[in-house]
Nucleic acid binder design. Structure first.
Length: 409
RNA sequence: CGGGGCGUUGUGUAAUGGUAGCGCGCUUGGUUUGGGACCAAGUAGUCCGAGUUCGAGUCUCGGCGCCCCGACCA
């Protein structure tokens, strides 16, 4: 992609009323644009990063037998009344075609997936099953905040699983937990993300959250560094301030963002929708459910909160919108253009700064955008024998011959 | 939802109740090209609605919006 053609502009300064790091850097870099509090547009750079995260999640969920589907955003009131959440969920956004508000905008999809499964799952032979989608969620949060960390409209990957009994759910739940660990590892925040014990609800002692440690987080967790797990503040008293795995009592209190959540629903949603199956004896039994969520946009914001410096973002390689930022300097960009074509041919994801602006501005924007590799090609670099290669997270650059560049990447 | 802060061109800001100015951006022309270059000429604005006043960006009332703290967050 040529930077001169990009549908976004960088900005030297952040909007005056944005305090959160992720909002400042993502807006300045032209990754996102705020439409109103809690709702953002994703521009080409931001959407590419989103897509990277989505694909990582998709691969890992497919690997645990999740089947991708797509469910609507507009839900009938009736379904939400059945579970008591039409009146019981205060963040529910209610809409209607006329005066009457007879629909809900999806805050989550249990009310759709449970009756859907009822049409498909009839026998123990149909179980287990797991379906998921990437879909817009709407929540009338009283207070949207922290850039893209707490949105009113956001995309969630929500996975729902259906089982014959608790044992089967437990086994699947553990598989998803491992898949989530893989996802956060691949997204570059494995070291900062803790499998976290949280309150469980009716059907399990605990639910589990994946909490990524950063000052920008709104949750307080207690980390056991020996086990690399954490406990949410909401249940720390119940556990008497001890690690549930090793008994360690010197836990570290810190702030974190909830980037994922896995939850054993049991029959909470099977019952209102009469979601049952016939077992081997022809007996009708309730289906046991689990649900598992990740918000890729929140994940993106969290990554920015964790990986940035005073100049800009430092994307982990797997989620950067482009792998390489090619910067041509000087009047004559023909050598740069030639190298750009070569990289494109080699299928290396490259953003080519072909703009007619000063070198300083190109450097500043490269630091702001935060692509992992920066390549400078100029008269000076060519005289020195090739191009200048520098990683965003390293201070010094090296001269690399153009022929050897592809190997270096 | 309670508390606080703030709304001035695209963006960041300035303006005792008295001509809305400046930087950046953008446009045109010229000079430049290794850390946000320079010259010149342009471009575009007081959140909305009432009120006070000879006169309102500024004062009063109401609304809307944004940010922050708190509460809330299967």
């Amino acid at each position: 992609m040529k930077q001169s053609q990009l549908f976004s502009k960088t900005n030297k300064v952040a909007p005056k009323d944005e305090e959160s790091i992720n909002a400042q850097l993502l807006i300045r870099g032209g990754y996102v644009d705020k439409l109103m509090a809690g709702t953002y547009s994703y521009l080409p750079l931001g959407w590419r990063t989103y897509k990277k995260l989505e694909e990582i999640i998709r691969e890992e969920i497919n690997a645990v037998d999740g089947q991708e589907i797509f469910m609507p955003s507009m839900h009938p009131k009736e379904n939400w009344e059945k579970t008591g959440r039409w009146d019981g969920l205060d963040v529910l956004v209610k809409v209607g075609l006329g005066e009457e508000r007879n629909m809900a905008l999806a805050p989550t999809h249990e009310e759709v997936v449970a009756p859907l499964a009822k049409k498909i799952v009839e026998s123990y032979k149909d179980l287990p099953k797991a379906v998921y989608h990437f879909q817009n969620k709407f929540r009338g949060e009283k207070r949207a905040k922290s850039g893209i960390l707490r949105l009113r409209e956001f995309i969630m990957k929500d996975l729902y699983s259906f089982h014959v009994d608790q044992t089967d759910l437990d086994a699947y739940y553990d598989r998803v937990a491992q898949a989530y660990k893989n996802i956060f590892e691949r997204a570059g925040i494995g070291a900062q993300t803790y499998f976290t014990y949280a309150s469980g609800g009716t059907f399990a002692k605990y639910s589990h959250e994946f909490q990524a440690e950063t000052e920008a987080g709104e949750d307080t967790i207690y980390v056991c560094d020996a086990c690399h797990i954490a406990i949410n503040k909401e249940i720390i008293e119940d556990l008497e301030h001890k690690c549930p795995l090793c008994g360690n009592a010197s836990l570290r209190e810190t702030k974190a963002v909830e980037v994922g959540n896995i939850f054993k629903l049991g029959t909470k949603y099977s019952t209102p929708f009469n979601l049952t199956y016939k077992d081997q004896n022809g007996e009708e039994k309730p289906i046991i459910m689990g649900c598992y969520g990740i918000g890729p946009q929140r994940l993106m914001g969290t990554i920015v909160e964790i990986f940035h410096d005073d100049k800009g973002i430092l994307w982990p390689e797997a989620v950067a919108p482009f792998r390489v930022h090619l910067i041509g300097l000087g009047k004559d960009l023909s050598a740069a253009e030639e190298l750009y074509q070569k990289l494109v041919t080699e299928k290396i994801e490259v953003l080519f700064d072909d703009r007619e602006v000063s070198a300083g501005e190109k450097f500043a924007d490269a630091d702001l955008l935060g692509l992992p590799y920066r390549i400078i090609i100029s008269e000076k670099s060519l005289a020195a024998g090739g191009v200048e290669l520098k990683k965003r997270n390293e201070k010094d650059s090296q001269i690399v011959k153009i022929e050897e560049l592809l190997g270096g990447l």
